[in-house]
Design a protein around this nucleic acid. Sequence first.
DNA 1: AATTCGGGGAG
DNA 2: CTCCCAGAATT
Length: 319
Amino acid sequence: MLQQTRVEAVIPYFERFLARFPTVADLAAAPVEDVLAAWSGLGYYRRARALHEAARAVLERHGGAFPSAREDLLALPGVGPYTAGAVASIAFDRPERLVDGNVARVLARLYAIEAPQESAVFRARTWEHAGLLVADLAGRSAGEWNQALMELGALVCVPREPRCLACPVQARCRALERGLTSELPVPKRRPTAIEVELHVAIVRSGDRWLVQQRPATGRMAGLWELPTVEPSGARLLAGPDWPDARGATPAIALGDELGTLSHSITRHRIRVRVFEARWLAGDPEAPLDFASRAQIAELGPTGLTAKILRAPFARATAR
DNA sequence: AATTCGGGGAG
DNA sequence: CTCCCAGAATT
């Protein structure tokens, strides 16, 4: 959960998740749909699938006992260099290094690493320094050291306007010595944004809303959303074939435009136009269905769908 | 090496 | 607005 996601954002998900799946065996035994529903809103849904697969791998390969060796951890789905180092050092007290975004920034400044942050050179230098520091611990806890390093980056050696006066290692910081703290680390190049327009239909039946499940592959796979089309036809974010696949007779008639909102997912900048709409057919068939707010929350909505359902203009459409 | 995955909070 | 977060997998 913590991969590329702030601790504060993770905590409520983590607590709900562990209440629902208390053990590795519980997680392994659960349907992936339940795991996705518990993950809904946190983003990077591949992580949820990987964690689910990892739980099953722990049962099959390790008899249900979570592995503690770095190499065994790396072999689990969704576990890369950072996570392997974090679990090995923090959970199992092994003398393993770790580099996350915070540690990379601390080390880049401490040792004045001028290579761009996405480069292989930068990655090699930071991991090398992280290893040397752990090797100097002389038996003291690498888990505590690694967490302290991350915390230093999160609280003191922050991206902009670092609090160098409060830094415990200011005396040995080469970036501070050279006046480079605002220049390092050299940020990775930002990819150009992709503009997308989506049309979303709000179809109400009493207190229920028409929703559709996204395909099993691709973005936000398996999550539920309000009926959505991408008029430009690029189909970057649009759901399953709707309304085209409904045949010559459109099953949904668009009405008044209720409002617009903006949404961003990674490099896509989405302008969303929300329309009131009517359902023209009989009972909807999969992947379409009517669901109440509570049911939608339980199914696992996309972040955009949750945002739309919270919007004032969506609340005011009761029929 | 470059892209692709969400969403949210800080500034 | 922009940036970036306790990254990993895929192309």
